[in-house]
Design a protein around this nucleic acid. Sequence first.
RNA 1: CGGGGAGUGGCGCAGUCCGGUAGCGCAUUCGCUUUGGGAGCGAAGGGUCGCAGGUUCAAAUCCUGUCUCCCCGACCA
Length: 488
Amino acid sequence: MAKNITSQEKDYSQWYLDVVREAKLAEHSPVRGSMVIRPNGMALWENMKQALDQMFKDTGHENAYFPLFIPKSFLSKEARHVEGFAKECAVVTHSRLKSVDGGVEVDPESRLEEELIVRPTSETIIWDTYRNWIQSYRDLPILVNQWANVVRWEMRTRLFLRTMEFLWQEGHTAHATEEEAVEETLQMLEVYRTFAEDFMAMPVHTGVKTAGERFAGAEETYCIEALMQDGKALQAGTSHFLGQNFAKAFDVKFQDKDGQHKLVWATSWGVSTRLIGGLIMTHSDDQGLVLPPKLASVQVVIVPIYRSDEQRKEVLEYADKIYNELEELGVRIKLDDRDNYNPGYKFAEHEAAGIPLRIAVGPRDVENNNVELARRDLLEKNIVDRDGISAKIKDMLDDIQNELFEKAQKRRGEMTSEAGNYEEFKNIIENKGGFVWAHWDGTPETEEKIKEDTKATIRLIPLEDGEEGECMVSGKPSKQKVLFARSY
RNA sequence: CGGGGAGUGGCGCAGUCCGGUAGCGCAUUCGCUUUGGGAGCGAAGGGUCGCAGGUUCAAAUCCUGUCUCCCCGACCA
C-alpha cells in the first residue's frame, strides 16, 4: 500500500499534505506561507487555466495585464474595500538595498514618496485605468480578464487552500446598465459552475453570500461552494456584482445615448490555485492523487514489463504501437520506459500522481495480444484485448470523468442534511458534518450566534426561492432554507 | 497574532532528560543479479543537527533570541 501517505481516516490534514508531497504538486518555500508549485502542480493549473481561458473567450472576454504594484492612495478610495483588505497587505516602502559588512540593508535614503501595495486584488488599479478607457456608452461593455499572482498577508496558511501569494484570474467588467452587470455576474458564476462540474468533476452549489461574507466593496457576492471528503465546505469561486461603488470611487462615467453622464456598473470574478486543493479533497484517496481525465496532463501511462533484453525490445515495440495509436487520437499519453525502476514502483508512483489509466504490457501480453488496463479511480485492473484498445480507452476516460462526478455528487448527497430545529442542527454539525440546510431569519446577529455556537457559517443563500419557514434560532420568519457548513 | 506540538543527509525518524564531536530505515551513486504491485547482495557518497548569539575545556544536547512547518483559535479566496 501507499508507503508514505497517512490514511484519510487517521489524519485528514496530514493525508492532504502527504498527497501534495507524493504527487509532487508543491512544497513549502523558505518564505512563510508561500509555496513552490512544482511541475506537476503547475501542469494541473495550466490545464485548468486553458479550459477556463477558453470559456472566458467564448463569453466575449479578453485578457490584459495590470501592474503588481498599486499606489497606496488608490486603495483608500473605496471605503469598504480598504476596510476589507487593509489588514492583509504587503507594502513596498523602499527601492534599494546597500551593502553593509558583507551583507545588505535597506537603504534609508531610498524611501518611496508614496508606498506601493502588492495587489491583494486589482479593482482599484483597474478602475483607475477604466476611467481613461471609458467616455461613451459605445466604449462599453469592457470585458477584461487577467491571469496574475496576488498577495494577501494571511495569518494561517495551507498549501493551495490559503497561501500568502497565489495564482488566480480576475475578471473585471464595466457596463452601461445595472441589468447588464448583474447578468454578467450570473453568467460568470455559471461558467465557474460548469468548469467545476464538467472539468474538475466537482459538484458545486451556487448561490449568494450573506452580507457578512460578501467581498469588500461588492453589492452582492455570488459563489460556487463545494463539499470536501471530510465534510468541510470550500468556497471554490466568487463572482461579484460591484454596483457603482468603484465607478464612484474612481469617477468613471460615460455619456449615454440620452446625452446624460452616468456612472458605470461593475463586476469582478475570480478563481485561484485554491481549486487544486479542492480537486485533491474531492477525489483523492489513500494511494494519492486522483485526477479527472480532462485535467490530467498525462491521461494514460504505459508501463513496460520485461526480463531479458530480447523481451525488452519486443515489449517496447508493442508498447510503442499502442502509444502512437493513442497519441493520434489525441490522448495525452506517456511511455514510462525508465529502466532503473521496477514495475511495482512505477505503479505506485503513477497512482500517487493520479494518472487516470495505466497500461501494463509484458511478454505475456505480447504473446496473447492483450494488455493489462488499470483504473486509478477504482484501483481496478483487467486484462483486455489489444485490438480496439484505443476506442476502449477513449470510452474509459469519459467514464472515469463521469463516474468521478457521480461519486462526488453521491457523497455530497449523503453528507447533506436538513435541520428542523437548532438542537438538531448543532448535533449534525458536531457529529456528522457536511452541508446542512436550515431556516435562518436573515439577520447578521443570528448568523453570528450560529457561528459562535457551532463554527458553522452560512455558505450561501440559494438563488431560487424555497419554501418559507421559521428561523431555527429565533423562530422569526424565514424566506427559505440556507446552506450551512464548517468550511476551509 | 494567542495556545499547543515540531525542526537532526532528499524523505521518515532515533539520539536531547543526564554535554564528550552524529546514527538508523528509505532514497542516491557504482557493480552484479533482478523486473506482472514500492527488488536482492556488495561497495560508496552525502548532514556547520533550522538560523544567530551565549554558557563550557567541550553543545544536536543547557540558556537567550529568531525563522519555518503542523494542529487549535481570531482573520480570510
